[in-house]
């Protein structure tokens, strides 16, 4: 379990990134922090592995204040995926994935065979293992980034807009892959994004942040959509534009889902295994 207890961050130049933030994240839960730039979401994420130390309050993992832990050892025990993949350009894909296990003292051979498995887990052809990061596409690089984060089999996975820099089709692909991996591995995931659709797709729970790390609303995607707390949330999730209000129209015997502007959003399928009930 990860607990933020009244944390705040003020930088030496006087800017306050986070005012007063509290949150508990249960083990095996995927929580998405979503907000615009300046919402302090990345700052909060980086407090978990001590890339940022809070100015006030504390962050605890399983009850233990991270401030008392050695940052290097802490970071090696937590997976981290960032937007620009951050792979080491002078090392092959395989060496990038084995970095942390080798730093932790795993034998190179063992780390390599595990890395090859991981490449398959994240949907990469193991033949790419010998390539350098610059020889991969953006989507492939992000997959390597995920594999690297998983390499030391951490309990916690931090993801900082990991799919922000790839095109929409690849992003959708990576998101599905992420859902599949999570179903398999049940990590505790803290995911940061500014994309509300991504947040609703990937989060068991979504935390909507205003500037300064102020929680506007938190809950399951369903809860937030069903009852937006205020206008800020309404506008963020797009409820005010009507893009979230859908209704069903019957056209030529099929049930079409239509949004508030009258644009067709999809076809309503009957529930599996039975005829549609009205």
């Amino acid at each position: 379990m990860i607990a933020f207890e009244n944390v705040g961050k003020t930088y030496p130049d006087g800017t306050t990134a986070v005012e007063d933030f509290s949150l508990e994240i249960a083990s095996h839960e995927a929580v998405v922090l979503v907000g615009t730039s300046g919402s302090g979401k990345t700052t909060l994420l980086r407090m978990i592995n001590r890339m940022v130390d809070p100015s006030r309050g504390r962050v605890a993992i399983d009850g233990e204040d991270v401030a008392g832990l050695d940052p290097v050892r802490l970071r090696r025990s937590i997976g981290y995926v960032m937007q620009a993949s951050g792979l080491l350009p002078h090392r092959s894909v395989l060496d990038n994935v084995t970095t942390v296990p080798v730093l932790r003292g795993t034998s190179r051979r063992e780390a390599r065979s595990r890395a090859l498995e991981l490449l398959e887990t994240v949907g990469l052809d193991p033949a790419l293992a010998r390539r350098y990061p610059s020889q991969l596409s953006g989507g492939q690089q992000q997959r390597v980034g995920v594999a690297r984060a998983l390499a030391a089999d951490p309990n916690i996975l931090l993801m900082d807009e990991p799919f922000g820099a790839v095109d929409p089709i690849v992003r959708a692909d990576l998101q599905q892959e992420m859902l599949r991996i999570q179903k398999e591995l049940h990590k505790t995931i803290v995911f940061v994004t500014h994309d509300i659709d991504e947040a609703f797709l990937l989060g068991d729970r979504v935390v909507l942040l205003r500037p300064g790390g102020v929680v506007a609303q938190q809950g399951t995607p369903q809860e937030i959509l069903a009852a937006p707390a205020d206008d800020f949330v309404r506008s963020f999730v797009g409820a005010d534009r009507g893009t979230r209000t859908l209704h069903v129209e019957e056209i030529e015997g099929r049930r079409i889902v239509v949004d508030a502007d009258g644009r067709a959003a999809g076809v309503l399928e009957p529930p599996a295994g039975g005829a549609a009930r009205a």
Partner: peptide, 18 residues
């Protein structure tokens, strides 16, 4: 060196010397 590469290395748990 791209600061993002250094940041990522630090986030993976490399010491400053590493």
């Amino acid at each position: 060196v791209d600061p993002r590469t250094v940041d990522a290395a630090r986030a993976q748990g490399m010491t400053e010397w590493q």
